[in-house]
Amino acid sequence: MPFSAPYVLIASMDVALEHERLFNEIYDEHAAHLASVPGVRKVTRMKGQPFRIRIGGELVPMPEPDPIYTAIYEIDDPKVLESEAWAEACEAGRWASEIRQHTRNRKHHIYKISPSEREFSILHTITY
């Protein structure tokens, strides 16, 4: 699946188990607010899972990631995150008042998509 933007923001966190259902309900709303910010092209949410992988002839168990919830925001430029529109979207809806205080282990990272990945993605999209 090709990226649609030259940068991605990876936002990861955990939530208290007793708030997990509400977290997932409200995060969908929160992601929609952030997706409406100019310069945000796409938001993808995911929850990590344990798995097993064969490495060097051995089947190695891998635990759940830490933190377990992640969202990938495809953005035009890191400056999008400094905008008033981003700040307003972060506070819109129920996220700030009902969920943010129940999250922990929050991590945010920016990655620039390598030119070869974007070239491959464009080629792949055209080819198929």
Rank of each mutant, 00 (worst) to 15 (best):
A71V: 11
P2C: 08
K112M: 09
Q101R: 15
P2M: 05
H30W: 08
S12V: 01
Y111N: 09
R94F: 01
R106K: 13
T44N: 04
S12N: 04
A5L: 08
S12C: 12
L34A: 02
S116M: 08
P63F: 01
L34E: 03
C90M: 15
G57F: 01
G56R: 00
P50W: 02
F51T: 01
R52T: 00
N24E: 15
W95S: 12
K107V: 11
D76H: 03
H19F: 15
A11S: 11
Y128C: 02
T44C: 02
I126G: 02
I68G: 03
R54C: 00
A89M: 00
F23N: 14
N24C: 13
F120V: 08
L22N: 06
A96L: 13
R104N: 05
L123D: 02
L34W: 04
H30N: 05
H102M: 05
F51C: 01
I99T: 08
W86H: 13
H102F: 13
H109V: 04
I53W: 00
D28M: 05
K107N: 10
K79C: 04
H102S: 06
E25H: 12
Y111T: 07
F23A: 11
A16Y: 08
A31E: 01
G48E: 00
P61R: 10
S97Y: 12
E82R: 14
S114N: 10
W86F: 08
L59K: 03
E117C: 07
I53L: 00
S114T: 13
Y111S: 13
P65E: 04
L22E: 15
R45L: 11
S12W: 01
R104E: 05
I126E: 13
S4D: 09
P50K: 07
